[in-house]
Design a protein around this nucleic acid. Structure first.
Lengths: 166, 166
DNA sequence: TTCATAATGTAATATTATAACATTCCACGT
DNA sequence: ACGTGGAATGTTATAATATTACATTATGAA
């Protein structure tokens, strides 16, 4: 992703977000093409709105934006699209915020793992095999078959901690 | 806890749940006494209701039970008690279920980490320093100051997988 | 006992999500 | 191009979860 070139994993203030958006959309289109799925106008619009930033966004905020862009929309309009996008791993749900964010790791299977800044609201998706391995070992010990995972670490990101912009 | 003596970490069908409840209540009372907190009748009642089982329970289910036990209760009644109990680590919130479960690790500070069975609904609280360490390392790399954590692993527990009782 | 504060009661409402059914759209075979 | 069947969306209503604001009551400390 565009912001990976910068110092940290967190989306930095100066990163080229347009690249994030376009690669997310291209990735989604490729994925749907290859899997015979329909990335309809609505679904694409929802995906694009989710990708407005790296801040998880609520379903009703999306709904307002869809409406303001001229389309007739009610809750099911957005929830159905969110369900589709989640089902195919194009976005993730942040359970602790009841909000949704674009997937930054389209190219490989992964459990969603997020660091989320309480101050700026940005979410960074993280891959760490050490976490994966530890959880897998625990599951094995328990004989537990994992179906879904939620890992959300909230706090203050480095930029906010250091008083960057705000 | 009572079920720790059994084979797995998961609450087993045969475990002595009364011991879970009494040690949770005793622990809460000791904690509140030592910290100058008031474990009021209402708070104690909510805690006891949460401890009815190892299955996370919703706020409105608790509300119904409180009402049925004769007390006047509205949503704030239960939410305020839940907030108190969470603030002091006596219960945890399961964000992916909008539900609440008693804390099984009263005696030490810890990030809440759960395995939750989709079938029987039971939640097992787990301690694994390997997970803690991996997350701590990632946070340090990011310069991220952790405030709260949510780790919820959902799937099928060993007992359900093996067709135990159901 | 009195007072300040904490806890709870009460009413209204906000926020998030789903159910149920109607309509429209689109790929496909003809 | 035409009709068809299933997928997608529109529409209305409502469920489920949670909070705000203000009134009242209970509690412990001075």
């Amino acid at each position: 992703m565009a912001f990976d070139k910068h110092k940290g994993l967190f989306p930095t203030a100066g990163h080229d977000h347009k690249t994030c958006v376009s690669s997310a959309l291209e990735g989604a289109e490729r994925y749907c093409r290859e899997h015979g799925l329909r990335l309809t106008t609505l679904r694409r619009q929802v995906l694009e709105l989710v990708w407005t930033s790296h801040r998880p966004v609520g379903a009703y905020a999306l709904l307002e934006q869809i409406s303001s862009e001229g389309r007739k929309a009610a809750p099911p309009t957005v929830y159905r699209s969110l369900d589709f996008l989640m089902e195919h791993g194009l976005i993730h749900r942040i359970a602790s915020l009841n909000a949704y964010v674009g997937c930054s790791h389209l190219t490989h299977n992964h459990a969603p793992r997020f660091f989320i800044c309480d101050q700026c609201g940005e979410a960074a998706e993280l891959d760490d095999p050490a976490i994966d391995d530890a959880i897998a070992r625990d599951a094995e010990k328990l004989g537990f078959r994992i179906e879904r995972q939620t890992l959300e670490i909230s706090g203050i990101c480095a930029q906010c901690e250091n008083g960057a912009i705000a």
